[in-house]
Amino acid sequence: MPVTLAEELVLLSLDDESGASKEGTNTAWAAAGGLLAELVLAGRVEVADGRLTVTDRTPIGDPLLDGRLERLAEWAGKRRPGRAKAADWLAKDRSTVVRDAEQRLCERGLVREERHRVLGLFPVRLYPEADGSVERALRGRLAAVVLDGADPDQRTAVLIALLHSARLHRPAFSALPRQQAKQVRARCAEIAEGDWAGESVREAIRNMQATMVAVITAATAASTVAATG
Rank of each mutant, 00 (worst) to 15 (best):
R206D: 13
R117V: 09
R139H: 07
E135C: 06
V98I: 09
V215S: 05
R139N: 05
V98F: 08
P81G: 04
G24K: 14
F122E: 13
N207K: 00
W29H: 08
V118N: 03
S18D: 13
D151R: 15
R187E: 14
A161C: 12
P177E: 03
T224P: 03
R68N: 12
R51S: 09
L5D: 07
G149T: 09
A161Y: 11
V54Y: 08
Q179H: 00
L105T: 15
R136H: 10
E8I: 03
E199H: 09
A42W: 01
T25L: 15
A166N: 11
G67M: 04
A214S: 13
A189G: 14
G50H: 06
R112S: 03
L119E: 05
I60R: 04
L12D: 10
F122M: 13
P81T: 01
A76E: 01
I205D: 08
A31N: 10
A219I: 00
L35H: 06
V98M: 12
R51D: 01
E38N: 02
A31D: 12
L52A: 10
C106S: 10
A181F: 02
E102K: 14
L36R: 01
I160Q: 12
E46D: 15
A28R: 11
W29K: 04
A214P: 07
K182S: 04
A186V: 03
R44Q: 13
A192G: 14
A218F: 01
V145E: 11
A192F: 12
S165H: 09
V97A: 11
K182W: 00
R178E: 00
V213P: 06
A143R: 15
D62T: 13
L14T: 13
A76S: 07
A221M: 04
T211Q: 06
R117S: 12
